[in-house]
Design a protein around this nucleic acid. Structure first.
Lengths: 173, 173
DNA sequence: ACCATACTGTATCATATCTTACAGTAAAGG
DNA sequence: CCTTTACTGTAAGATATGATACAGTATGGT
């Protein structure tokens, strides 16, 4: 994403009478960054298509998976997992309750919080979505060796670390 | 993103009285996919912070860069570049006009379309944002060799190709 | 010329998310 | 105890984006 050349969507100029560009504002790095963004974007699209077939949004599905993993988790917990605000999570939980996929249960010991639990209907659906996800992953990694995957993983981990706050511009210690 | 383990945000279960998970719905692939998503997400955040300092959203900034690259481009053109709907682009252009960063000019020869052009104020701002972007990229690629970058690029390109429609599940011809 | 079709931008509505503020509750410090 | 502080979920409003429908315009076939 970022900016980059959007797979070089070609658009011929109509009237170059505008302010003429003095110096390129598009660099080689932009292209690389675009590429880094491209794979996740395609994955998102495919997952959206999968979840939509079940009447779910990707966010709803992710919420279900997290609740599945940690039954009784709090909305604030879920917000951290989904990287959403608490208010947004509240809406998502509303939706899941309305669809009878999850429910809020009063937590004993803390009357502020709700414990989130899945309902049977969710347990039916999740494995099917799991299967769809596996198919997408299989396609993603088709004809790519474990060695290559390890290499990419290592590099991405390094890049992610580079962007961590604290690794400002100075070499990491 | 996808689902994955969100950097393993740990959340201890409160009350495991829920439906007990029979089989894992989180796979090793999920972790890899999460990692693929992590770098772009961090980049997005940093860019958002940069553009916000200039009173711009990332979308507005991207729009400016594309208009810079192709003065006179159409809103439909821009929508393709930004991967947005035409309606959304209309809003963005409204904003840019209000901020006196860009303008619509009637296109001669086709009275349906607007030609998009930057205004001087945008030309002042863009190089500064370019500099911020370069700093972020430098940080991203810190201590990573050109060879490694080429390797990641190749693999990501391959993965992207794997997800291309037409490469369904069958090996590419 | 005329008509059917396609395209451009916009208006309108729906949705997802964030921000801010708040009420209820908990916890910690006197 | 009581007060202050912190935390949880919700409400209300703002914003970004998408979906749909539409008016105006272009284009191509006849």
């Amino acid at each position: 994403m970022m900016l980059a050349v959007q797979s070089m969507t070609m658009v011929e100029p109509r009237d170059t009478s505008g302010i003429s560009p003095a110096k390129s504002l598009l660099t080689a790095s932009d292209e690389f960054v675009f590429l880094i963004e491209e794979v996740p974007r395609k994955l998102r699209r495919m997952f959206d298509a999968s979840t939509a077939r079940f009447g779910l949004t990707r966010t709803q599905w992710r919420a279900l998976v997290y609740i599945y993993r940690t039954p009784g988790m709090t909305q604030t917990d879920l917000a951290k997992c989904l990287e959403l605000e608490r208010a947004s999570v509240g809406h998502v939980v509303d939706q899941l309750e309305r669809m009878a996929l999850a429910e809020r249960r009063a937590a004993k010991g803390d009357r502020r919080v709700w414990e989130l639990h899945l309902l049977p209907r969710a347990i039916e659906i999740l494995p099917q979505l799991r299967a769809e996800a596996d198919m997408i992953y299989a396609r993603l990694l088709h004809m790519i060796s474990p060695t290559e995957i390890r290499a990419v993983r290592a590099l991405l981990t390094k890049m992610s670390g580079n962007l961590e706050s604290g690794s400002e511009d100075r070499p990491p210690r």
